[in-house]
Structures are given as C-alpha cells and as structure tokens.
Simulated assay, not measured.
Amino acid sequence: MMTEGMFTNYFLPGIWITIQVTVFSAALGVVVAFLIGTLRTSRLWIVRFLAGCYFEIFRGMSALILMFWLVFALPLMLGWQLVPMWAGVLALGLTYGAYGAEVVRGALAAVPVAQREAGVALGFTRVQRLRRIEIPQAWPEMVPPFNNLLIELLKGTALVSTITVADMAFAGNLVRLGSNESAPVYTLLLVLYFAMAFVLTRGMRVLERHAKASVGQTIERRGLFARRRPPAPTLGAPDAEALPAGGTVGTR
C-alpha cells in the first residue's frame, strides 16, 4: 500500500529532479532556438544551409534514442561517460531547441520589411537590427508557441527515467513495484504532471501579456473569472439610455 513515507522519500525528490531537468533543458533549448532560428534568416546561403541541416537532423531525431546514444554509445567512441541527468538535458534541449528554431525563424520573418529597411537606413548592423528592431517585435508572437513547446518538454522529461534518472516517472515505477498498486501511483503521476503544466501555462500567460504590452498590444484576459467587456455599440444605433420615456426616437 502506498504510504506518506513513499511520497516523501520517492515522489518529492522525483519532483525536484523533474523541475531541474525541465529548467535546464528549456534554458538550453532557448539558446539553441534563437541561435539556429536567427542563423536561418542569414543572407549567406552557407549559414542558412548549415542551420537548416541542424534543424532537419534534430527535428527528425528521437529524443529517447539520442539519450541512449549519449549514455551508451558515446562512451565507447570517446572513452568518457556523461552523467545520465545531463545526457537527458542535452538530448531534450537539442531536440526541442530545433522545434523552437522554427518558431523564431517564422516570427522574425513576420516582422514588416519596412522595419528592417528602417534599421538599414539608420546604419544598424545585423546584430543591432535583431536586438533593437526585429526580436522585440517578434517576441510577442514567439511566446504562445514557446508555451506549447515548454509543456511538451515537461512531459518529455519522463523519458529520462529510461536512463536511470530518478525523476517523477522513475519514482512512480519504484513505488508501484514496492506497493504493488498501479492505479493510485499512475493517477498521482497524472495529477502531478497536470499541476506542473498548469503552473507553467499560467506563468507563460503572464509573460505573454508583458511581451504584448511592451510593443503596445493588449491581450484579452480569458478564463472563468475574466471580466467581460460590453459589446461596442452599433454604428448609427441609438443608445437605450438616450431614448425618451416613450421608448421611441423623437422626430423634429
């Protein structure tokens, strides 16, 4: 039977490991996404070609098989062993960074051409145009897709349990074997992953509002307790409060 001690001794450390893997993989993924995404917008064809090769290779590669390769095959080739947790972080960060690179490339491509031409007219270098003009305008469009990728990354951290990293999934399997109860253990895992994903989603929604506010855009609050705005009056329709007591519009 699953006890409170099992939760304290197994699930809590597993939650902490899952958080670490998610944070470190997301940090690496963001760096890779912005690097490869911006390189794919370069004017040099060789740079675009190399960045496109990275994107196609890691987008079509299984993160699980990449973890196995880093843990079991790489030591045979180089003679040194990666720590399993960092092998998992590297595999997830490189894989989801490739997905994020397409988000960055698409958002940068959506920036109006006139904005880029204005930067050229001001004498900005390519890096200055990215930093001052293109990325600030493209960032609000990147946040929603990044939110989806972050949730997928969180769920993908369960793969590290296959290379003996003691995350939540690994802890759940240990508790299941010790208590011989599958339904409570896996139900608890579902609830834990959902709770963590919900917190991440709320945080990304706040980030999205700040990103849109920084470029003068507004985002409507959605949710059960969101305040609904009254519908805008129809052009030419009289205001109900301005009608006379008889309920009809007076004529001259």
Rank of each mutant, 00 (worst) to 15 (best):
L159I: 11
Y96Q: 13
A73F: 08
A91K: 01
T125P: 00
T164C: 09
P140C: 06
G156L: 00
W139S: 11
E141F: 13
L108E: 07
A118Q: 07
K155A: 04
L74T: 12
M77L: 15
F68Q: 05
L76Y: 04
Q128Y: 03
L90I: 13
F146L: 08
T125N: 06
R105I: 06
L66G: 10
P75M: 08
L149A: 02
L122W: 11
R132A: 14
Y96P: 03
A101S: 15
F146R: 00
M67E: 03
L159G: 00
P112F: 07
R131V: 11
L76H: 07
M142D: 06
R116M: 13
L74C: 10
P112G: 00
R132K: 15
G88K: 02
L149Y: 06
V160W: 07
L122M: 15
Q137F: 10
E152K: 10
A110D: 05
A101P: 06
E152I: 05
V71E: 12
Y99K: 08
L149C: 02
F146G: 10
G100N: 08
E152P: 00
R131T: 12
L122K: 10
I151D: 01
V143W: 06
L78K: 03
L154F: 02
Y96H: 13
G79T: 03
V160Y: 09
L130Y: 14
M142C: 12
Q137C: 03
I151R: 03
A158K: 05
M67C: 02
M77Y: 09
L159A: 10
P112C: 09
L153Y: 00
R105L: 07
L74E: 09
F146D: 11
A158T: 11
G106I: 10
G93Y: 04
M67S: 06
F72G: 08
L108V: 15
G79E: 09
G156E: 00
Y96V: 13
T95G: 13
L78N: 04
G93K: 01
F124R: 06
V103I: 13
I65Q: 04
W69K: 06
P144V: 03
R116H: 15
T95Q: 12
A118V: 13
M67Q: 01
P144A: 12
